[in-house]
Each structure stands twice: as C-alpha cells, then as structure tokens.
Amino acid sequence: MEDLQARHRKEQRDLQSQITQKKKQASKKTRKGVNDECEQLDAELREKHAAELAALDGEPNATGGTDVLGEPLEDLTLKVDGEEATNSTDGTQPAQDDISEPTPPPPPQVHNDGLPNPQTKKPNKAKARLAKRALEQEEQARQAAEEAKDLPDLKQQERARMLGPMAERGLREKEIRADGHCLYAAVADQLEQLEIPLGSGSGEAGGPAYKAVRAAAAEYIERHPDEFEPFLEEPIEGYLYKIRETGEWGGQLELMALAKFYGVDIHVLQDFGRVEKIGGAGKEQAVWLSYYKHGFGLGEHYNSLRKAG
C-alpha cells in the first residue's frame, strides 16, 4: 500500500506539472478547450487510482489521508455493501503492471450439521464489478500495446524534420538535460555563448547557471505584473515561487520575460522548420533554441542551438 500511495503521489505531481504547462501555453481561443482537457486528465487519473486502491485491498483508505493536491482521498475509495464503486467509463487505461489480481472470496463458514452459516458476509458486488472491470482494462491495454507497434515513431520523425532547418541556418544542437529546467538551462547556454552575463544569481556557491536564469525570469515578471497576470490562473506570488524554487517547466511567458530582461531576441526553431521570434530587441546577436513536442521522455523540451563549426 505504501508503494502504491507513493506512486500515486508521484503521478499526481507529474500530472499537475503537465496541466500547468498546458495552461501556460494556452491562448485565449484555446483556453476553454485546454481547461476541459486538464479536468478530464485529472478525473481519469483519480479514477485510475481509485481502481488500483480498491483492487489492492477492496476497502476505503483507513488513514483518511489526502493526495498531493491536498484534497481528501474519500472520492478515490471503494464504497461497500452494495453501493456503486468509482469506475471509469471514458476508456482510461491503467498500466498493465499496476493491476492487481482480485482476491477470491473465502469459502462459506459451515456449521457442524453441514449447512452454510446464515451469518456469513455476502460477497461485495461493487468489489466484484471493479475486479471484472480491471481485467477488461488489462486486456484493452494489451491490445493497445499490440496496435502501438504499428504506429509511426513520432520522436524519430520530429527529429528528422528538425535537422534540415538547423543545417540551413548553420546551427548545431547542444542537448540539454530533460529535467524540468531545460528552457532555463538552454537560455543560459546561449547567453554564455554570446558572452552576456546571466545576472547576480550566477555562480553563487557554484550553483547551476539555470538558477540565475530562473531568478531573472521571476524578477522581470515581479517588476511587470500587469504584463503577465492576465495570463495566469493562480496568484502571481505562487507562480513566482515555482519559477524560483522548483523544477516547474518554463514556457511562452518565461521566454517573453527573459527576452526583455536580457534585451535579446529569442528564436525558437520548431517542427517543420517553423521559427517563432520572441522579443523585439532587433540586435544582431540572438538566442536560438530548438523546441520538441515528442522528442523526450518528459514531453515538451528545449535544447540550445549553437553556431556550427
């Protein structure tokens, strides 16, 4: 149970980071659709966790704990004695390794006269339905894995489409570690190539360069809240804390802040050779980044593009 709860907390943290990134990159036109998608993802994860908890022991969480978002786990537990159990109807697939085998019911107690004990507890119908559903989902997951073998490799295709535009512009890629700090680390690498100081936070106690870039982004947003608050769905104080102190992903807003803080144009090379220009400094020197949607394990990712040769 402890291992299962630890994995649930990690999956919830990962999903929260994914939802935050999606919302930050949403435009006014797509915001409603993105919010609906994020709510659906959250609901699907909760239903998956409910199924796994129930499949493990068939009982509600006796500790009365909360998930990593601080919400009660009551809605994740299985109801008993004939009540309906939380069950996914949207086709969400739990991972095959996460499904536990249902425990067979114990044999009925028998009196000395050979007749069943009338006080024997009746089988939990909700628990049985959930176990049946888990087996169905396991089979669906197996079929999906078989079908995925014939799908195109999106990572390989996206990478191939990026190489040509890089060569045309005389650029080569400096791969950045995919750890949540990639945008800031890629910008730091570019600024160092251009011999632009990272800021007062660079080099403190031998800390990584991306921390100075994170501090710069937070500082600019803090000084110019009116430029960013209309795009935020949380208080700006909490948003700034995530930039400075956590591994929260960076996106469009952070690139805008960094372009203005350092007085540079930021060019982002994307799939099919499309280049997005952020800033407006008009200087000859510019920061070049590559952006991948499918190329890395965490999903969206930024690398630094240096001059070839």
Rank of each mutant, 00 (worst) to 15 (best):
A218Q: 04
R223G: 12
Q25F: 03
Q193E: 10
E254K: 01
A257T: 01
L69T: 04
I99P: 00
A178S: 15
K79H: 12
K242Q: 15
F231S: 15
K125G: 05
G70C: 08
L253E: 03
E147P: 00
F228L: 06
K132N: 12
L198V: 02
G82W: 09
L183D: 01
I99T: 04
C38G: 06
D67I: 05
L289A: 01
A186G: 05
Y184I: 03
E47D: 08
A55K: 03
H224P: 01
M166L: 12
P104A: 14
G299Q: 06
V268H: 02
V268Q: 02
A55L: 15
G282V: 05
H267L: 14
I19S: 12
R142I: 07
T66C: 14
N112I: 05
D226K: 08
Q119E: 14
R46H: 06
H267Q: 15
R9P: 00
Q16Y: 10
D189K: 05
K122S: 09
G207W: 12
G206N: 08
K307C: 07
A160F: 08
H224V: 08
A145W: 05
Q270C: 10
E136K: 09
K48I: 12
L15R: 04
A51V: 01
P116K: 11
A131W: 07
A281R: 04
G295F: 00
E168P: 00
E2S: 05
P104I: 12
E173F: 03
E237P: 02
P107V: 14
E248M: 05
L73K: 05
D3E: 12
S202L: 06
N61V: 00
D57N: 15
V80Q: 14
Y220P: 00
K211C: 08
N61W: 00
L56T: 15
R161V: 09
Q270N: 07
K149W: 07
W249Q: 01
R46T: 06
E158K: 13
K79L: 13
L258V: 03
E233Q: 15
E248W: 02
V268T: 11
H224E: 08
D98S: 09
E139M: 11
D42M: 15
V213I: 13
E74S: 10
Y262E: 04
P60I: 04
T120R: 09
T89N: 14
E59A: 10
E47G: 07
F231H: 15
D97L: 10
K242Y: 11
S100W: 00
E204W: 08
A218L: 06
Q285F: 03
R223L: 13
K293W: 01
Y220T: 00
L305N: 03
E138V: 08
W288I: 06
A178C: 15
G91Y: 03
K127L: 15
F272C: 11
D265H: 06
H224D: 04
D271W: 09
T63R: 13
K23S: 10
I196N: 03
A286Y: 01
A217L: 11
H294M: 05
R172K: 14
G82Y: 08
A6Y: 00
Y292A: 12
A178G: 13
L253Y: 02
D67M: 11
E11Q: 13
V268F: 02
Q270I: 05
P230D: 07
R129M: 14
V68D: 07
A85L: 10
H267S: 11
L240Y: 03
A55V: 09
D75Q: 06
Q96W: 06
V187P: 00
E195T: 04
Q285M: 09
L258A: 05
E195N: 12
P165L: 11
Q252R: 05
D150K: 14
L135R: 06
G279L: 07
